[in-house]
Simulated assay, not measured.
Amino acid sequence: MASRVVVVTDSTAVLPAELAAAAGIEVVALPVVIAGETHCDGEPGTAPADIVAALMGKKDVSTSRPSPASLLELYSRLADDGASAVLAVHVTGEMSGTVESARLAARTSPIPVVTVDTRAVGPCLGLAALAGVHALAAGASADAAAEAVMARANATTSYFYVDTLEFLRRGGRVGAASALLGSALAVKPLLAIDDGRVVVKEKVRTSTRALARLEELALEAAGEGAAEVVVAHLAAPERAEALADSLSTRLGEQLAVPVRVAELGAALGAHVGPGMVAAVVAPALA
């Protein structure tokens, strides 16, 4: 009987349900705690509008990692369904304990589990998980597919703009951007994910300039090769669509697939706040 390795990722990957299903990716919903009540990302009450209302209403919003027991239950179900192994592709361990839960669950899993700390978050994570699926479809082993996951994660660039650093500060995800907190009212930072941490890429004075610069940085990241681009946002559809349209026009035939626009779920939205826009650029899958 042929082996079947299943890719598992988490809801910070910002993968549309239909895309994940078509690729055969299992998505673990991260817990989100709103005003003391725990929900799973994607459940009723965790829609983007819900998380924005909670944040703007100054309710306590936090996120948590899935329990090792819940992941073990998933691995066992996959084994019962005929999977021979799992490739667990998760959000950076600098921001979440999800990959640690996966490692703990792997110890007693009925099938082998190869865990990958991608040092990534958001669409970069989703694109990396898709690289794992692509490698497996080409006949790679789980270990080789894990290498393909990391190769794409490392080759992907993630830039994002936030209206305020307040929500990153509340969630303890500000990292190297913390030096900006004192001048947050006077600066509009362009941020990046570098080795699993939020860092400052550039500082500009207005949101208009920040979004224009975000576009230029995305174009620079694309270089001259075939690329895949995701524009993500929270409660900023006009900004996101405008950026996606412009990148689509300027990149043209470089795009391996149309630019995808995605709104963040609660697990990520809780940490960036409304108005956030991201441009994520990856090399196209060969």
Rank of each mutant, 00 (worst) to 15 (best):
A102E: 03
A177D: 08
L181G: 04
A148C: 08
R107F: 07
V116G: 01
L181M: 15
G175H: 14
D195T: 08
C124Q: 15
A105Q: 00
N154K: 11
A131E: 05
E147F: 11
V113G: 00
L104R: 13
K188I: 10
T156V: 04
R169A: 13
Y161N: 03
D163A: 11
G172S: 09
V187E: 04
G175T: 10
M150Y: 01
D195Q: 15
V198T: 15
A128K: 07
P123D: 08
F160K: 01
A144I: 01
H134S: 14
V162M: 04
V174G: 08
A153C: 15
D117T: 14
A120F: 00
D117P: 13
A131Y: 03
V174F: 03
L127K: 01
A142Q: 06
R103K: 15
A140Y: 09
V114G: 01
S183Q: 13
A148Q: 02
A179C: 10
A192R: 15
C124F: 00
A137F: 04
G139F: 09
A153M: 02
N154M: 00
G182M: 04
T156K: 05
A176E: 14
A144S: 13
L168A: 13
D117H: 10
P123H: 05
A186L: 15
R119W: 06
L104T: 11
L190N: 02
T115V: 15
